[in-house]
Each structure stands twice: as structure tokens, then as C-alpha cells.
């Protein structure tokens, strides 16, 4: 199963890269011109995200460096303990939606300290693999089209993150202990 999926991942982009121009040529599209025409908007699209990302990443960076995030972790600990999350992985759970780099750093440190094949190591690996940097994604995607009112996206994103966390803990207990 894993082999097939892994091959699929390796082949997906090369196949797309070959098939799209091939079918386009077959349908009499001017492939080079069309590619350039589409690619024209690339710079603008990427640059447009700068103010939004700066706003969000500055706030996250200040929040983290000041030590406020550590306080948040402690405040959340009793709640997360209730659903069976071991204390060692708490910082990762709280950090994950805010900062991808920091969460990966924590996960790496836990894997190194406890060993990749320990229960904690497997759990944090599952948590890292199954979750996304929700705030970063929202900021980037909404920012690229100039949207500043996110409505209920933050709530549904965090609800999903929390579910993923609980599901990771549950399934790791079932499979690994």
C-alpha cells in the first residue's frame, strides 16, 4: 500500500507536466504563448501576499518570543490532559496551527529525545503528519485575493485541528500501545 502511494507521489508531477502540454498541442493550443500568458500573473499573485503574511507572522513571532505562548501551553494543559494527551506533546499541539517551523522543531526534538519508535515519538509523528499550519494557510490564501474578513473560517479550522489531535491520540493508543 505504502509503495503504491509513494510511487504515485513521485510520478504525479512529471506526468502532469507531460500530459497537459501533450493534450494541449493535440487540441491545437499555442502551448508556449499560452503558458507565458498564464504565468504572467505569477509575480503579482505572490507579492500580493506580503502585507498579509507580514501582519500575521509578526504577531505570531512576538507572541512566541515573549514567552506568552508558553503560558498558553500551560493554560491549555489541564484541558488537553483530560482527553489523554501526554504532557510532552502539549507544546506541539498548541504551536501547530500558528507556526509550522516551530512545530516541526518541537516534533524533531521529541523524536530525538524519546526515540522515533517510542509511544511519544510515534504520537508526535502522527500529530505532525496529520495537521496543518491553519493560521498561515488562512492568511496566505485570503491574503492573495485581498480578503480581510475571514468570517467563520478560523473556528472551523481550529475545530478540525482539535479533532485531528484527539483522533491522533486515540488511534496511537489503539495501534501502538
Amino acid at each position: 500500500m505504502f509503495g503504491i502511494v509513494s510511487d504515485l507521489s513521485r510520478w504525479a508531477i512529471p506526468v502532469v507536466l507531460l500530459m497537459v502540454p501533450l493534450i494541449a498541442i493535440f487540441r491545437k493550443v499555442n502551448v508556449f504563448e499560452t503558458f507565458v500568458e498564464g504565468a504572467e500573473a505569477g509575480f503579482e499573485t505572490a507579492i500580493k501576499t506580503i502585507p498579509y503574511l507580514v501582519a500575521m507572522l509578526v504577531a505570531i513571532s512576538v507572541f512566541r518570543a515573549s514567552g506568552a505562548l508558553d503560558i498558553l501551553v500551560e493554560a491549555f494543559s489541564p484541558v488537553l490532559n483530560l482527553v489523554g494527551v501526554p504532557a510532552e506533546v502539549l507544546p506541539h499541539a498548541v504551536m501547530r496551527p500558528l507556526s509550522g517551523g516551530a512545530a516541526l522543531g518541537i516534533a524533531t526534538d521529541i523524536v530525538k529525545t524519546h526515540g522515533p519508535d517510542s509511544f511519544i515519538g510515534r504520537l508526535v509523528s502522527t500529530m505532525q503528519g496529520s495537521s496543518d499550519t491553519t493560521f498561515y494557510v488562512l492568511t496566505l490564501y485570503f491574503g492573495s485575493v485581498g480578503i480581510s474578513r475571514y468570517r467563520y473560517s478560523v473556528i472551523s479550522g481550529l475545530a478540525a485541528d482539535f479533532t485531528t489531535l484527539v483522533a491522533s491520540v486515540y488511534v496511537c493508543h489503539k495501534v501502538f500501545s
Binding site: P21, F35, V36, G38
Partner: peptide, 23 residues
């Protein structure tokens, strides 16, 4: 991060335009 995105977005926008024109 935004600057790093320029290259990859430009590339995929080109491919997507092709995919769109080809139906």
C-alpha cells in the same frame, strides 16, 4: 516566504492556463 513563492506560482499558473485552454 512570499518571494520564494514567486517561482513556483509562476510555473503552475502557466501549466494551469494550458490545462484550461486544453479543456
Amino acid at each position: 516566504t512570499s518571494i520564494d513563492l514567486v517561482a513556483i506560482i509562476t510555473f503552475w499558473l502557466g501549466i494551469m492556463k494550458l490545462a484550461e485552454e486544453a479543456g
